[in-house]
Design a protein around this nucleic acid. Structure first.
Lengths: 350, 350
DNA sequence: CTGAAAGCGCTTACAG
DNA sequence: CTGAAAGCGCTTACAG
């Protein structure tokens, strides 16, 4: 209905019979203007349908946006980051801090073309797992604070990660202590590509796990096994994307003697549970399973899944605080925790 | 390391030995500048660590932000909207369209003080269920497009909703057709407050359900019952927040003869399933349950839950398209669908 | 407390 | 294709 041009501060000032700066002060520094004048201005604004200083113009003068930008990992879009259950937890952690400080949360896929980190209107960025440190360049050039997740980015960049090696160690040691000696490992395949099988006896490099954080998990597994006199090189590894349902089948095919499966992803762990049941195996009597990361599904699966709590929500909270605190560089390493549920027990055939 | 002031377009122009407008054109209208000059500018920019025109200043000239704002219902914060499973689905729908058009998604709690709709830097708003139409005023005054969810806001405002009456009707008719005659209804309590019990025989107004959309569900229930010669006034109603675990207990206490429970929320339906099992009742043999809205949990519950698909994700997609299409006002009414699973069967004691 | 003026960094007709 | 100039809407010293 109202298609006249947007009223500006000057219109309001004229209508109220004051100068532009007075009108500006009435909105932005009310204490500097006496109540009587303030009301005249407010009245004029109301009549003109003027909401207050244009946020865009305000921004140009001293650019606080009141929003934090989340850059999802890799090629992920907005929808991907909402759908991934572990990332969803991380986002919830960030969101809690947003609510504490009254900031908006904006999800910014790392687009090459328009948009992306180079132009997003936010006060800082949380990079949710980066491929190369250079992905953060636009943030640095814009002089915007940022933090990198799940990797140590050196002494000049804030980072938050969980001790994945420790997580892997806790998972494997738990099984070792229960008496297991025969294992299978479900490793993480990041990005695209078919499921890969790494047979035992063949030496395996870091490519047997996806990212650095996955390689750390593997290292943790290896340590715990080694303490028990076992060599991880003798353990069959299936490396798959966590949503690959066939991978669980391949795992059980390739490690028929295993009494325990170590999985780097919680959804993979649940898939193994399902596949074991399908084969008529009883978990944990015939097979123990440990996942990685804690999401509600882990507690609800049948049987409930023993897993490593990767502290996703806490990572989110911590990263957000680093941005909003605007303090010095911080490098945080969170400690994971083993959550023992019903999917692990001593081996019966051992 | 680099604490010199941010380089501006003018710095780049000087360094490249061209005028400011040429430098601007090199970035924003490259076709207007010959390649040779463009490269000079690009080189100067690179050396200065200049990323391209400052998004904030650009914004002031012709304000396209490339982002869509979601305003969660009522008092919800960012974290609440991420955690609510049905709203999460809706957000995912919006996110899919964001990815299609390359826009960012920003979640904007409706804050009274700073931030909020009045100042958020977005190109349009999706109001996720509003208490009063006046909550949309700031969006209108800013001349930003917006759409209202779950309510018809009249001919001048775009809206997207699902036919809740039809949803209620489908749910109740399904039970009636199975032969049920004794019902209990779990109604929705929006906002705060204790669980309320509405005994049968007492006439009940719209306050027996939360929002208009809930009242429509109730109307749908009533219609289907009426077609079967039953009066909804004879049905006990428990009105509770969907995350209230005690409500399911109260429902079964208050409607001991019911062979079927109609629930306005999917989580409530699942809670009834759990409570029934706790009491040693077998679902659906002793009791049938129908929920409202479809989330992954509904298929995974034991037994899986018959429910009405409220099309949350599709609502999100549609609302986002209305914003990005920038077309005329649209008022969309989506049709719900009944998903029959294992929580409903003919009554055994009937 | 008020008002005239400069400037935030950029874009866009306009004249060359 | 280039350059000088005005202006997007606001804020902020500065002098009154």
């Amino acid at each position: 209905m109202n298609h006249s041009p947007m009223p500006t501060l000057l219109d309001v000032a004229r209508k109220a019979g004051v100068s532009r700066s007075t009108a500006s002060n009435a909105f932005s520094r009310p204490d500097v203007v006496r109540a009587e004048v303030r009301e005249k201005v407010a009245k004029a604004a109301l009549e003109l349908g003027y909401l207050g200083p244009d946020p865009k113009a305000k921004l140009l003068r001293h650019g606080k946006v009141n929003a934090i930008g989340i850059v999802p990992p890799g090629e992920w879009g907005v929808a991907d980051s909402l759908k991934n259950p572990v990332y969803h937890q991380f986002l919830s952690g960030v969101a809690e801090v947003c609510d504490e400080v009254g900031a908006n949360l904006v999800i910014i896929p790392d687009r090459i073309t328009n948009g992306g980190v180079g132009t997003a209107l936010v006060d800082g960025f949380i990079f949710g797992r980066i491929e190369h440190l250079r992905d953060t360049e636009p943030a640095r050039l814009r002089r915007l604070p940022f933090v990198v997740m799940d990797a140590d980015a050196g002494p000049d960049i804030s980072s938050v990660r969980v001790d994945a090696r420790m997580g892997g160690y806790l998972a494997a040691r738990h099984l070792v202590e229960l008496g297991h000696r025969k294992f299978g490992i479900m490793s993480f395949l990041r990005g695209f590509g078919p499921t890969r099988y790494h047979p035992p006896g063949v030496p395996r490099g870091p490519e047997a796990a996806g990212m650095e954080t996955d390689q750390e998990k593997l290292r943790g597994y290896a340590e715990a096994l080694s303490e028990a006199g076992l060599d991880i090189a003798d353990v069959p590894i299936v490396q798959a994307q966590p949503w690959d349902r066939d991978a669980a089948r391949m795992m059980l095919d390739m490690a028929p003697e295993a009494t325990a499966i170590l999985s780097m992803a919680v959804m993979q762990g649940i898939a193994v549970l399902d596949e074991a049941r399908r084969r008529g195996h009883s978990v944990p009597r015939d097979l123990s399973v440990v996942g990685f990361n804690e999401i509600p599904e882990a507690a609800k699966s049948t049987p409930s899944l023993t897993t490593v709590d990767g502290k996703a929500a806490e990572k989110g909270r911590m990263a957000a605080r680093i941005i909003f605190d605007a303090g010095p560089i911080r490098r945080e390493l969170l400690l994971p925790r083993l959550i023992v549920r019903s999917s692990t027990a001593p081996p019966s055939k051992g």
